[in-house]
Design a protein around this nucleic acid. Structure first.
Length: 112
DNA sequence: TGTATGACGTTTT
DNA sequence: CAAAACGCCATAC
């Protein structure tokens, strides 16, 4: 009984909102956690809509390379890096340093 | 109503 | 090894 369609956007918001401060996550990781194996695009696009939501730290979500691909969609292209650095995440050349260490895995952190 | 595109990632050529 | 195409679903025009 699943007459309602899976609102991927909402699911993404829930996970992103659970990302602790000073941590970063990747689109694919969220997509994988939600079952969107190849729907990483949806996660990124969801972030675009997430802009209207205050509890969705999209700046903590980066691509698989740890690159701030979506920085250009923020209030200012540098805002994303500013926010990350403000939380303790070192960013250089639009790339998250120590990305592996700061990586926040939903399945792992949430204790799937 | 249909086409085009998008904050990615994986797979194949 | 590198580059290109595909897949996924929703929004925009």
């Amino acid at each position: 009984m699943n007459t309602e369609k899976p609102n991927y956007f909402d699911l993404v918001y829930q996970v992103v909102k659970e990302i602790p401060e000073g941590r970063v996550c990747s689109y694919g990781a969220i997509a994988n956690y939600l079952g969107l194996k190849s729907g990483a695009r949806m996660v990124g696009y969801a972030m675009n809509a997430a802009h209207t939501l205050p509890d969705v730290p999209a700046h903590r979500v980066v691509n698989r390379n740890g690159l701030l691909t979506g920085k250009h969609h923020f209030q200012t292209p540098t805002k994303m890096q500013e926010l990350l650095e403000s939380e303790g995440v070192q960013v250089e050349n639009d790339q998250v340093q120590n990305f592996e260490n700061l990586f926040w895995d939903p399945e792992k952190e949430l204790g799937f």
